[in-house]
Design a protein around this nucleic acid. Structure first.
Length: 860
RNA sequence: GCCGGAUUGGCGGAAUGGCAGACGCGGAGCACUCAAAAUGCUUUGUCCGAAAGGGCGUGUGGGUUCAAAUCCCACAUCCGGCACCA
């Protein structure tokens, strides 16, 4: 299939066939979208509705231009789930809004001179029109935008609640700085190659005072609660979150540094190797490195100063290059190893990170590759303390110090081999630990340290606190002011909202400080009759999306962020649908904020999204769509060419929802043909609504009831493609009944057509609604209710039992589904083919599993 | 390096230890038509064979089982995440 064919198809389609006689999606779309606009079938407004509830949420979009094919997928899939639960008799809350703060609006403003507000709300308007055309079953009465004052004031409220609990705090620290956008970035926004996820610029480190949310306080809960989501969230997302939080278990060990007033604590996952620590390395940007250098000779101070400057100039990419030489400077300071009193030199080196652990390590070069590389480069001592050749389950170490000294054990010489001994083994050169397996030595060493008061078991995380300040205009102002001495003062609730001033006359170009700072009469204000300055930064937009699912429950409440009674009714979200690109950022932040709100007593649950469906991407020719590559399929063009229903159905039918869809492999024309067949079936029904189905064609009725039985399981396990396949089969069977069987007046044909219309309303609402009307019912088919299958029709009159000999199918028997073992065995053995093959050979085994299979093993 | 996932016809994919390839795309043939489109019907894993029929077949190699795409072990390849994280 190639694009020219599609264009040809769309051109022939553009001559509209006569209405009524042939299937024309344009007519249906025009007709039904007007009727739905009248009916508003998906508004939740009856407080006395006693039906069970489901909260189905699709990730809300960022309004950058019109919807694209990715949106077409997520909203098609989310809508299937929402419409399914409605058919099953649930009240379904399925809201939509817009995540409308963010940098693209500002960039558009800079590039094209438009107001970010106007640009944003125009795009929202266009996307809303597209969503309505796309027949998404949203409750349009609950729409909000995060850039609405009525929304972002509650971001400020949330900030204040966190501030009160010490969960929002300001610190001076090394941050990721995007030199192009001239703003800081969260760790989560720096790509693995060290570039910005927005501008692509190489991120540099800069020391700045910024606002943070203390997500690290929640690291254990964020990690441990993932277990509750096992089986309900994709494995991939759970794994990514676990990796991101990155908990490691180990020990803290306290070292005294000669001439330094405080003891220094290091983190290690290998306390067993403490006797092998031959030097220490401190991260050059850490405060400690500066202090230690300051206490050394002026020569060392100068060398350290030069080194620090070089390090700061290097980019993240350079620093992450693991092949480069391990640089460092000896600080001419000495530490005392607490377990053996040994004096070991203290170095600084940039392979040690300032913001992981304590920013200083004990180096065990014999058993850590990085330490070994550093030791080799700077000619530092190496001492083996784990004999990795000794069996850990045996009793005695096989390598002695004498052997090591005499060089009889070359495999234990990491300096010569250049390879650190990372494996397991038995302790040597380690005083009281000698002879223990190194795993046991970890436990023992922690005990010894705890007894001596010089160490303790602990945990460390990869996760860092969430930096939420942004030097941008188009975001939520931070509700903090500073007095003349620079002390921070939190505003009170009655002083909210801090409104974002108009952008008129403002220079939004990136210049390293928030544009808001330039608005004197906004920044300078009063607090308790004192002159104060507002914080001019705005919040990361991920703050906006971290709690938006709660706002949908009472979107117009201007007295509180969310109404607890409504939260009680609907939350948490039963089914969340969205792209895997948010696997860490958004989902981690939303989980964090949910737990914070739980701790503050606002919520009674700790996980926001009970079940998560991550749809794949829509790609073209095996590659991500991009304008620069010229492989973009446009949403509105596809709708123009094939119609909403065909596009939606194609999204569902293409494959498992979590897999990527290559639009090249998809046939919207095929979907169109199927929809036309289904529609034609409804037209072929000649019986009246309400007719009893009991006397209808039995084969077709069985097929219909199998669909009634199977589809719920398929939809609930997200096998939308299989559900569509089942509907195609049913249409095929019904078609045959009309054309080659009893014909369109048979009640079973009506029954099948009704079930098809109802089921199809999940995938192709326009076609389904039209079929429903043709069948004589009032709109909307979305409010039909899924009948229970008739169990007597699920049992086949006869089934095929297979007879295998040595694993090969040799006969098929038509048998009753209730056939007994003995009878089935008799039938199998008396079968002509089988008896012929079995005759005269030794039967080794015979397994009978009625009514499916008889398995015979014959001797060779 | 560590962690996770995947591997089935020409293509997208189906099969919850029991007939591999449902459903669809694409292909071939036929009917209808002056012709085409649309629609309908037949056919389509592969090899041998005129056919009947038979052999082979779910990345590779082993194993468990009467029976394996499915469970177990090892390996290969691809995709994704993390990674100078002590």
């Amino acid at each position: 299939m190639c694009p020219p064919l599609r264009i040809l198809n769309s051109m022939t389609e553009s001559t509209p066939p006569e209405t009524g006689e042939s299937f024309d999606f344009r007519v249906l779309e025009k007709k039904w979208s007007a009727i739905w606009e009248q009916l508003q079938p998906f508004t939740i407004d009856d407080p006395n509705d006693q039906r069970p509830r489901k909260y189905i949420l699709d990730m809300f979009p960022y309004p950058s231009g019109d919807l694209h094919m990715g949106h077409a997928e997520v909203y098609a899939l989310g809508d299937i789930v929402a419409r399914y639960w409605r058919l099953r008799g649930f009240q379904v809350l399925h809201p939509i809004g817009w995540d409308s703060f963010g940098l693209p609006a500002e960039n558009a403003a800079i590039q094209r001179g438009v107001d970010p507000r106007e640009w944003t709300y125009q795009n929202i308007d266009q996307q809303r029109q597209s969503m309505k055309r796309y027949a998404t079953s949203f409750d349009w009465s609950r729409v909000f935008h995060t850039s609405d004052e009525g929304y972002y004031r509650w971001n400020q409220w949330l900030f204040l609640r966190m501030y009160e609990k010490g969960l929002a705090y300001r610190k001076d620290s090394w941050v990721n700085w995007d030199p192009v956008d001239q703003t800081v970035l969260a760790n989560e926004q720096v790509l693995p190659d060290g570039t910005s996820d927005r501008s692509g610029a190489v991120v540099v480190k800069k020391k700045l005072t910024q606002w943070y949310f203390k997500i690290t306080d929640y690291a254990d809960r964020l990690l441990d609660d993932l277990n509750q989501l096992e089986g309900r969230w994709p494995q991939k997302v759970l794994t990514m979150q676990r990796n991101w939080i990155g908990r490691s278990h180990g020990a803290q060990v306290d070292f005294v540094i000669e001439g330094h007033p405080e003891t220094i604590t290091v983190f290690t996952t290998r306390p067993d190797t403490l006797f092998g620590a031959t030097f220490m390395v401190v991260a050059p940007e850490s405060d400690l490195a500066g202090q230690l250098a300051a206490g050394a000779s002026s020569e060392v101070q100068a060398r350290f100063g030069d080194y620090l400057e070089t390090v700061q100039k290097s980019s993240e990419i350079e620093r992450q290059d693991q092949t480069r030489e391990k640089t460092g400077v000896f600080l001419e300071r000495w530490a005392i190893n607490p377990v053996n009193g040994e004096r070991i030199p203290v170095w600084t080196g940039d392979y040690v990170l300032a913001d992981y652990g304590t920013g200083i390590i004990m180096a065990v070069p014999a058993h850590d590759q990085r330490d070994l590389d550093f030791a080799t480069t700077h000619d530092l001592p190496v001492r083996v303390v784990v004999d990795v050749t000794a069996p850990v389950t045996g009793a005695v170490p096989v390598v002695t110090q004498e052997m090591l000294d005499s060089g009889e054990v070359p495999e234990l010489d990491p300096v010569a081999s250049g390879v650190a001994l990372a494996g397991k083994g038995r302790m040597i050169n380690s005083g009281p630990l000698n002879g223990l397996s190194n795993d046991n030595a970890i436990t023992r060493m922690v005990e010894l340290l705890e007894e001596a008061g010089t160490g303790r078991a602990t945990k460390t995380y990869r996760l860092r606190d969430w930096l939420i300040s942004r030097q941008r205009y188009w975001g939520t102002p931070i509700p903090i002011v500073y007095d003349e001495d620079g002390n921070e003062i939190a505003l009170t609730d009655d002083q909210l909202p801090v409104t974002l001033p108009p952008s008129e006359g403002l220079d939004l170009r990136p210049k390293g400080a928030s544009p808001l700072g330039a608005i004197d009469d906004w920044v300078n204000t009063q607090w308790n009759q004192k002159p104060v300055r507002r914080d001019a930064d705005t919040m990361d937009t991920f703050v906006d999306s971290s709690w938006y699912f709660l706002r949908f429950l009472s979107p117009h409440d201007d007295t509180q962020a969310f109404d607890p009674a409504e939260v009680d009714k609907w939350a948490p979200v039963d089914q969340y649908v969205g792209g895997v690109e948010h696997a860490i950022l958004h989902l981690l932040y939303a989980r964090f904020i949910t737990k914070v709100l739980f701790d503050l007593g606002y919520l009674t649950f700790t996980e926001p999204f009970t079940s998560l469906l991550n749809q794949g991407m829509v790609i073209l020719d095996g590659a991500k769509m991009s304008k620069s590559k010229g492989n973009v399929v446009y949403f509105s063009e596809e709708l123009d060419n094939y119609g909403v229903d065909a596009v939606r159905l194609s999204m569902a039918f293409a494959g498992p929802p979590e897999d990527d869809i290559d639009w090249r492999d998809v046939s919207p024309v095929g979907s169109q043909k199927f929809l036309a067949r289904a529609w034609r079936l409804a037209k072929d029904v000649q019986s009246a609504p309400g007719i009893a189905f009991g006397n209808g064609d039995a084969a077709l009725r069985r097929a219909t009831h199998h669909v009634l039985h199977d589809l719920p399981f398929l939809i609930e396990s997200f096998k939308f493609n299989v559900a569509v396949a089942r509907l195609m089969e049913l249409v095929n069977v019904a078609r045959k009944t009309v054309d080659q069987g009893p014909g369109g007046s048979d009640p079973a044909v009506r029954e099948a057509a009704e079930v098809i219309a109802m089921a199809l309303s999940m995938f192709a609402p326009y076609t389904a609604e039209e079929m429903w009307e043709i069948l004589g019912f009032d709109p909307s088919v979305a409010h039909a209710s899924w009948p229970s299958p008739d169990n007597t029709l699920l049992v086949e009159e006869s089934v095929v039992a297979i007879v295998q000999i040595n694993g090969k199918v040799r006969a098929r028997l038509d048998v009753s589904p209730s056939i007994g073992s003995d009878e089935l065995r008799e039938r199998a053995l008396s079968d002509e083919t089988i008896s012929g093959l079995v005759e005269g050979r030794e039967m080794k085994n015979l397994v009978v599993r009625p009514p499916k299979i008889v398995s015979i093993q014959l001797a060779e």
